[in-house]
Structures are given as C-alpha cells and as structure tokens.
C-alpha cells in the first residue's frame, strides 16, 4: 500500500546539486492541515515552507511572487477546483513540482490529476512523511507522475471498459470457455456453423483478441468468465 520508496534517493541529489533548500507553498483551505504540514516540512532537512494559501486566487499570487519549487494543492478549494490550479500552474512553469493532496478517493481522481500535469498524488489519510516524499519526488522530477497504487489503477482502467456481449455472444463465449469446437458450438446452439463462426469472430473483436486463448484470458481479466467460482 505505501508507495513512496522513491523519495529518498532524489533528496541526496537535490542537496548536493544545490545548497538551497526546496521551497514549498501549501494550498489548502483548512488551516489546521496547512499548519500540520508546515511543521512537518520545517522539521525536514532541505525544505522551507515559503508561503501558504487558502484559495486559488491567493495561490496564484503566492506562486507568482515567491517562485517556489513545489506547490502542495488540495483538490477542493473554496473558489474552484485544485485541478484547474494544477493545470494553469503547469502551463506557466514546466519545472514546478505539483503535489495533489486530497480527501477524494477513486481512480478517476488519480487520472484527472495525472492528466492535469501533477507530479504526485497523495491521499489525506497518508502520514505527512508521504507528503514530504511526494514533494521530494516532485522537486526532482516534476513531469513524471507518481502515486500509491497507480499500476493497479491502470489495470482497473483497462479492465473497466468491459464490452457488453449480446445474449448469443455470451452463450458462445461460455461454450468457448468450456473448450468446445466451432462445430459443437453450432450444434449446441442450433445454429449453422457459419453463423457460429460469425458470432465467435464478433466475440473476439469485442474482447480485442486474435484467437481463442487471448479471448479467454481477456474475458477472465474483465470478469466475463470466472476462473475461481465462489463457494456454493
């Protein structure tokens, strides 16, 4: 579950490359959250919190004036979406580290942050150590996105586009999974062999498969057929 094993390597490089500490601006409308994070960053070597903002407007002022290395941004702000802030900051500066910090869960949020140009995504249930690790990553590699559970989310996104099969295609797929040949499938369903072939071709096409093995693997991954049936 915990992901930020990347951070520590980068910090050394950063420290040696420049004597200056990484400057951070915190954007969150909850003062206690900003306070808690500010204390955590202050304790950490190589970081200095140069500004805090509670709104998007304030954040724009602060980042414009202070030119920080990293901005930590809450997704839901009183005057708009943190994603919009990420987008506009990314447009202004390619080398700015952007850490999205949010209470929202779900893969959609992760991908939205990634598409907006964020450098990292951290849930608010994670300890401040993870926020700091994310900030460290963002300072060094602002254009590469990191997030706990990103590969799993990618897998889910791939399999979430489950095709919808017609009743006939569904029957054909079940018979394919049982290992039956085209002729037997046709007999089973009282259809001609050529019709059965058409249905099979359609199933392959919908599953993005070229042959039976690929089709069955894809169907299993998408949950159309189950490898391990529940106890009954």
């Amino acid at each position: 579950m915990t992901a930020f094993d990347l951070g520590t390597d980068y910090s050394a490089g950063k420290e040696e490359g420049s004597a200056l500490p990484t400057s951070v601006v915190l954007v969150d409308d909850h003062e206690l959250i900003r306070h808690g994070l500010a204390v955590a960053f202050a304790r950490e070597d190589g970081f200095v919190v140069v500004g805090e903002a509670a709104t998007i407007a304030e954040a724009h002022l602060q980042t414009g004036a202070l030119r920080p290395d990293v901005v930590v941004i809450d997704l839901r702000l009183p005057d708009g979406s943190g994603l919009d802030l990420v987008r506009s900051l990314r447009k202004e500066r390619d080398d700015l580290g952007l850490v999205v910090l949010t209470m929202y869960a779900g893969d959609e949020q992760i991908f939205a942050a990634m598409d907006a140009g964020a450098s990292a995504f951290v849930g608010k249930d994670a300890p401040s150590g993870e926020v700091i690790a994310a900030a460290r990553h963002a300072a060094v590699a602002p254009r590469s996105f990191t997030c706990a559970g990103l590969p799993e989310a990618m897998m889910r996104r791939l399999s979430s586009t489950t095709p919808r099969l017609s009743d006939r295609e569904r029957q054909v797929l079940d018979l394919l999974a049982d290992g039956l040949g085209v002729a037997t499938i046709a007999t089973n369903l009282y259809i001609s062999e050529s019709t059965a072939k058409t249905h099979i071709a359609k199933v392959y096409e919908k599953l993005g498969a070229g042959n039976r093995a690929q089709a069955l693997v894809a169907a299993m991954r998408m949950g159309l057929i189950d490898a391990t049936p529940p106890p009954s």
Partner: peptide
C-alpha cells in the same frame, strides 16, 4: 463530510506525525 469532519481528522493525523517526530 469532505469539508468538515474528514479534514479535521486528517489534520489531527499530521499533528500526531509531528508528535511522533
């Protein structure tokens, strides 16, 4: 829930982190 209690508890979490340090 998002704007209220969840944020309060999350900020408590950061306080605990600081305490731990």
């Amino acid at each position: 829930v998002h704007d209220g209690v969840a944020q309060d508890v999350a900020s408590l979490g950061y306080l605990v982190d600081n305490l731990a340090a």
